[in-house]
C-alpha cells in the first residue's frame, strides 16, 4: 500500500471539489473493496476523501412515489427496509444473495455500484491487465475465463461487473444521483451509468472527475412478482456465474436483467418484450451478439435455463 493523505469531507460538494483538486484521490465509504485493492497496489490513491460523515445514509419516499436511497446506506439496511422488501423485493433479494453478512454491514449503495471486477488477472499485479494497467494486455483472454463476460466484451477486456444489487437496480430502472464539484446535481439512468470496456476498460462508469454519488432513486413500484436467481458453484459467498433479476406481471409481461455476463448489468429492452414468449425467446434477444470463450460458453445455456427458472418461480 502506498502512503496516502486522508480527509473527512463535511458536505458532498466539498468532497467532490476536493476529489477534483487531486486527480489521484479516491472516495472511501465502506472500504470493503478499495482497501483490499490498495493493499495489493491495484489502487494507489495518494489521497482519500472519507465520505462516511456526509449523512447520505437515509432512505426516503420521493414525491413521485418511489424511493430515494442514500449513497451511504449500508447494504444490510437497504435489504431489510420494509418498503424495499414490499415494493422492490428483487432488490432486497439481490442484496442478500451477495457477499456475506459482515460485508453487507459495511458496504454502501454507492460503493456497491462502484466495486471493481473480481477477474483474477486484475488482482494479480504480475499479470497483464488493461483495466489495471492500460495497454498491458488482457491475461484472461486465452487464460482462465470461466467467470468472464460473454457479451459486450472487447479485445481489451472480458471482465464482468460483480454486483448483484446493480442487476436488480437495472431491472427497476433506477437513476443514480451525483453531485458535481461545483455543487450542481445531475442524474444518470442506471443503464448509462456503467460502461462497456471498449478500448478503455479502466474507465468503468460515466461519472466525471470529482463527481460523487449521493443517492440512487427508484421509480414508483411497478408491482409484479420479483425474482432474483443467482447461480454459483457453492451455496453462499461466491460471485454469480449467471444471475437473473426478473419482474413479471400477471399478464406475463415484465423486465429481466442479467448479472455475471457482461461488464455491466445486462438488459435489452427488446428482450423484455419477448417475456410472454418464454425464456428461449428472451435469452435469444438478450444474448444475441454473445461471444463467449471456450471456458464460459456454458453461460449461454445457463442464462436461458436460469431465466426459465426465474419465470417459473414468478408464476408461483
Amino acid at each position: 500500500m502506498k502512503s496516502f493523505s486522508y480527509e473527512r469531507a463535511r458536505t458532498p460538494a466539498e468532497a467532490a471539489a476536493s476529489a477534483l483538486r487531486r486527480p489521484d484521490a479516491k472516495f472511501i465509504a465502506g472500504g470493503t473493496n478499495l482497501l483490499d485493492l490498495m493493499k495489493l497496489e491495484i489502487e494507489t490513491p495518494a489521497h482519500l476523501v472519507d465520505v462516511n460523515g456526509l449523512a447520505l445514509d437515509k432512505i426516503e419516499a420521493t414525491p413521485e412515489g418511489g424511493l430515494r436511497i442514500g449513497a451511504l446506506l449500508r447494504n444490510t439496511d437497504l435489504a431489510a427496509d420494509a418498503r424495499v422488501r414490499r415494493d422492490y423485493a428483487v432488490l432486497s433479494r439481490a442484496l442478500l444473495a451477495g457477499a456475506s453478512g459482515q460485508l453487507r454491514n459495511k458496504a454502501t449503495t454507492a460503493g456497491n455500484l462502484l466495486q471493481r471486477t473480481r477477474c483474477p488477472y486484475f488482482y494479480d499485479t504480475n499479470q497483464p491487465c488493461n483495466k489495471r494497467r492500460p495497454g498491458s494486455g488482457c491475461g484472461a483472454i486465452g487464460g482462465f475465463s470461466r467467470q468472464h463476460a460473454v457479451i459486450g466484451a472487447s479485445e481489451a477486456c472480458i471482465a464482468t461487473h460483480p454486483s448483484d444489487m446493480a442487476v436488480a437496480m437495472r431491472a427497476l430502472d433506477a437513476t443514480v444521483e451525483a453531485v458535481r464539484p461545483d455543487g450542481t446535481q445531475r442524474t444518470i439512468p442506471i443503464a448509462d451509468f456503467h460502461r462497456l470496456p471498449g478500448d478503455t476498460p479502466h474507465i468503468e462508469t460515466t461519472l466525471q472527475p470529482g463527481e460523487l454519488i449521493t443517492a440512487v432513486t427508484l421509480p414508483k413500484p411497478v408491482g409484479g412478482a420479483h425474482v432474483y436467481r443467482k447461480v454459483r458453484d457453492r451455496a453462499s459467498y461466491a460471485f454469480a456465474l449467471v444471475s437473473v433479476a426478473a419482474i413479471v406481471q400477471r399478464d406475463g409481461t415484465g423486465r429481466v436483467a442479467l448479472g455475471g455476463v457482461a461488464h455491466k448489468p445486462w438488459r435489452v429492452e427488446a428482450a423484455d418484450a419477448e417475456l410472454p414468449r418464454g425464456a428461449r425467446a428472451v435469452a435469444a434477444q438478450l444474448l444475441a451478439n454473445a461471444r463467449p470463450t471456450k471456458d464460459n460458453a456454458f453461460k449461454l445455456a445457463l442464462a436461458e435455463r436460469t431465466i426459465g427458472a426465474a419465470l417459473s418461480e414468478a408464476k408461483g
Binding site: R118, P120, Y121, Y123, D124, Q127, G139, G142, G143, F144, D233, R234, A235, S236, Y237, A238, F239
Partner: peptide
C-alpha cells in the same frame, strides 16, 4: 492452471472455493 504463464490463477480464498456452512 494458466498453461501459458504457468501458475495457479485463483490464488486467494475468493477464487479458490471451499464449502461454506450453507453447503
Amino acid at each position: 492452471v494458466d498453461k501459458r504463464a504457468g501458475f495457479f490463477v485463483n490464488h486467494d480464498l475468493a477464487g479458490y472455493e471451499v464449502p461454506v456452512h450453507a453447503d
